[in-house]
């Protein structure tokens, strides 16, 4: 077990954005280690760099400096297509705005997440329907996003994120656009499915109630990791610089 690398290993991970003359450090030298099958909450006010950190973790972005290792691979050195491959096979994303494709039905939205696998249409449909069944929306499969409630839309997004059997689901304010009831439902659904499939969940949120459910809580401020309430034995570095 000790020979297998940590799920994530971040060393001084930094992400700048150039806005005119000023440089914004969205993520500023984060050192972090995460294990598989963890449920991690990243807390912090808006603009603290949660989303950018999630994007670094989800291979949507490369660090400006520092290293992000995922399963031992330095994401900064991978090419676009390798990153795309990683996103397809290893990561699932859930967004605050649900980000469903508005012209596609719930089923097609799930299929969109599986299509790049290049599986046959019949299997694609079968797996997508199965994923929708898991979130309890099988009968809503042919509805367009506009015909679904916010909670239902987020459940479709969850089905889409999980259908590819990823290693990690990265959720950015998943309850931000939902009322507390459906927010709680969505989180319950997400955590249940994640543990059932052995998927690591990383949630960025400023919802303290949601963060409280997470065994490991990270706090961010101005791009720095200010608190790590984690139980991870390997991660004893406190992020501050």
């Amino acid at each position: 077990m000790t020979s297998t690398p940590a799920l994530y290993e971040l060393r001084g991970a930094t992400r700048f954005f150039q806005l005119g003359d000023s440089t914004i450090k969205a993520v500023d030298g984060v050192d972090l280690s995460l294990d598989a099958e963890e449920f991690v909450a990243i807390e912090g006010p808006s603009g603290s760099g949660k989303t950018t950190l999630l994007q670094l973790l989800g291979a949507l972005d490369r660090p400006s400096s520092g290293k992000v290792f995922f399963e031992g691979r330095d994401l900064g050195t991978l090419g676009d297509s390798e990153l795309a491959e990683l996103r397809l096979r290893s990561f699932g994303f859930i967004f605050q705005q649900f980000n469903l494709l508005s012209t596609l039905t719930a089923l097609q939205n799930v299929e969109a997440g599986l299509a790049p696998f290049g599986i046959a249409s019949a299997e694609l449909r079968e797996r997508s329907l199965a994923a929708l069944s898991e979130v309890g929306l099988r009968e809503r499969a042919f509805h367009l996003p506009g015909q679904l409630s916010g909670g239902e839309q987020q459940r479709v997004a969850i089905a889409r994120a999980l259908s590819g059997e990823p290693r990690v689901v990265l959720a950015d304010e998943p309850t931000g656009n939902l009322d507390s009831k459906s927010g709680a439902d969505v989180i319950a659904l997400l955590t249940n499915l994640a543990s059932k499939h052995g998927i690591t969940i990383i949630v960025a949120t400023h919802d303290a109630g949601l963060a409280a459910q997470a065994p490991r809580r990270l706090a961010m401020h101005d791009g720095c990791l200010v608190a790590d309430g984690g139980k991870s034995a390997r991660s004893n570095k406190r992020g501050s610089r």
């Binding site: 989800g58 795309a84 491959e85 996103r87 994303f93 980000n99 997440g113 790049p116 889409r160 590819g164």
Partner: peptide, 16 residues
């Protein structure tokens, strides 16, 4: 744009 971003997040390559 967001749709395209979503597709990329879903693992769609640039080519796709």
């Amino acid at each position: 744009v967001r749709e395209i971003g979503t597709l990329r997040a879903l693992g769609w390559t640039r080519r796709l």
